[in-house]
């Protein structure tokens, strides 16, 4: 069944190119593996663990595991999806995620994955952490309540913008996003609304100011079709080159 550039994902053959991760190859083939901290333009981070799959029976992050010929990869299984729901539930209770009043609702990958994986409740007790809002920048707002520590803004600022505006500080449950300047305020950095880091946040933590609900609820990308279906459509719209 398999050839030199094919692995099996949930019984379906996936062709890959040399150097691709399992996640990259699967997404390119229109096969969705849930993911949060992944972004096609950045090196893998491997921190959210939502893309965990079983490769020849062993659990691995699909974003950091290189695709190899003949791999048997299991992703869409009751066991893995149960673990993914648990991860999502922990993310929801660790921050303050109030979707009804969030501008990102319908465009938020955390919310979209929770719907897609049928997370019906938070299960765990909410932490309700006291987290601030940084509104010091004239054009961009940081709502730390919604940060999921994916580090995409850290990577975008460092690797694309060349500014290192953001970093993750602390460890374990004390880990948090910090702004790299003496005051710790975004308004005191050289951050700009045109930076790559201003557009990569998968949730509603980094948002442009004074833009609220210009697109009606119900007409937003993930309102129209689930994130897994969108991923398949995106792959078909952009044939592998």
């Amino acid at each position: 069944m398999s050839d030199d550039a094919t692995f099996m994902l949930d019984g379906r053959p996936i062709r890959f190119e040399a150097g691709q991760s399992i996640l990259q190859a699967a997404l390119a083939a229109g096969a969705f593996i849930p993911n949060l901290c992944h972004h096609p333009e950045f090196k893998p981070h491997g921190s959210c663990k939502l893309c965990t799959v079983k490769v020849n029976g062993r659990a691995s992050s699909a974003c950091t595991t290189r695709a190899r010929a003949g791999q048997e990869v299991a992703s869409d299984t009751p066991e893995l999806n149960r673990h993914r729901r648990t991860l999502l539930q922990m993310l929801f209770v660790e921050g303050n995620h109030f979707c009804p009043g969030c501008e990102k609702s319908g465009q938020c990958r955390l919310q979209a994955l929770a719907y897609d994986l049928e997370m019906l409740n938070p299960h765990y007790e909410h932490f309700y952490p006291p987290r601030p809002i940084d509104a010091s920048h004239p054009d961009v707002l940081i709502d730390f309540n919604r940060c999921i520590l994916c580090a995409l803004c850290v990577r975008a600022s460092r690797d694309v913008d060349g500014k290192t505006v953001f970093a993750l500080a602390g460890r374990g449950t004390a880990q948090h996003l910090v702004v790299d300047c003496p005051s710790g305020k975004l308004g005191d950095t050289d951050f700009a609304a045109t930076d790559k880091a201003a557009e990569v946040c998968p949730v509603g933590a980094i948002l442009p100011k004074r833009v609220g609900f210009a697109v009606p609820i119900g007409e937003r990308p993930f309102d129209i079709e689930p994130i897994s279906v969108q991923a398949a459509h995106a792959a078909h719209a952009e044939p592998r080159g």
């Binding site: 009043g101 809002i133 004074r210 609220g212 609900f213």
Partner: peptide, 10 residues
Amino acid sequence: GRPFWEVPIS
């Protein structure tokens, strides 16, 4: 403390 454009929806 919330941004003003969010208030009507909240």
